[in-house]
């Protein structure tokens, strides 16, 4: 257990002297020496860091740096690609997610995912949200209705769609679709939500709504969000990891990362010199 028994220190003192605090918040993921190959192509090199519980962790970096790959590794969606090999470990609740005993269905129920392009199913709005609970065994109509309502309320979509729950989800606007996808993910009651550039396909107003939602959701969920938008990372995240060419260059609290980057490459990137 890497979690120390923390000393009773004053909060402000910690903020001043520590880059971040091991004992302060619990970790949800403990990534250790993670490497990943697509065939003979190494996409992730020796990544090690902890992801904090009920915080927003942003993964930034230029395109092709492995940030999306890393995100998809956290719920093992990356294995949908052919010829994927991994080494190292990602510990989640005391167990390495690559352990053969891990049940992928349970893993992915606990670790939800929101994709870059909104991907509602070709079903009604109601059925989209109810899909997760249904496949996990909820048959009771009343219970389903409750879950759908509360999930849609949580993403602020309920008032917009409550009169048209039986219409196709594909009739919604892009931003509404993305919030529906988040609601769909919440309906499964996950613990972690992975978001892969959730606003990159949306207009600025819809993006702002999603960002606001992320800030609300972190009260209840641990969120890892990949973004190519550094301002967004700075606005919404507590911690930021900077990836480059498959390597983790720097990981720090977001405010420190942007005000005082330790690595020259991070400095170049956050100041917009490349990428």
């Amino acid at each position: 257990m890497a979690i120390k028994e923390a000393e009773p220190i004053q909060i402000d003192v910690r903020e001043q002297f520590q880059p971040y605090f091991e004992g302060d918040v619990k970790k949800v993921f403990q990534v250790e020496e993670l490497s990943l190959w697509y065939g003979s192509n190494q996409a992730l090199k020796d990544i090690s860091f902890d992801i904090k519980e009920k915080q927003v962790t942003a993964i930034i970096g230029p395109s092709g740096c492995g940030k999306s790959t890393f995100l998809k590794t956290l719920n093992r969606m990356v294995e949908l690609n052919t010829n994927v090999k991994t080494s190292g470990s990602i510990v989640y609740h005391d167990i390495d997610i690559f352990d053969p005993s891990v049940n992928l269905v349970e893993l992915r129920s606990a670790i939800g995912m929101v994709f870059q392009k909104p991907n509602p199913f070709a079903k009604s709005i109601f059925d989209n949200v109810a899909f997760g609970p249904k496949i996990h065994g909820v048959r009771n109509k009343k219970k389903l209705k409750e879950v759908v309502e509360s999930s849609l309320k949580r993403v602020g979509l309920w008032d917009e769609v409550k009169d048209r729950l039986n219409e196709s989800a594909l009739s919604l606007s892009g931003g509404q679709q993305q919030r529906l996808c988040i609601a769909r993910c919440l309906a499964v009651e996950p613990e972690v939500i992975l978001m892969d550039e959730p606003t990159s396909a949306l207009d600025p107003i819809s993006s702002a709504k999603i960002e606001h939602l992320i800030e609300e959701l972190k009260e209840l969920y641990s969120i890892v969000v990949v973004t190519h938008n550094m301002q967004q990372a700075a606005r919404i995240s507590d911690h930021t990891a900077f990836f480059l060419h498959g390597e983790l260059i720097e990981y720090n609290r977001t405010d420190r990362m942007f005000s005082n980057p330790q690595d020259q490459r991070t400095k170049d990137y956050v100041s917009g010199r490349f990428g």
Partner: peptide, 11 residues
């Protein structure tokens, strides 16, 4: 994306 969406929900 339909397949990804389904699997990511734990189907």
């Amino acid at each position: 994306s339909f397949r990804e969406g389904g699997l990511a929900l734990g189907a």
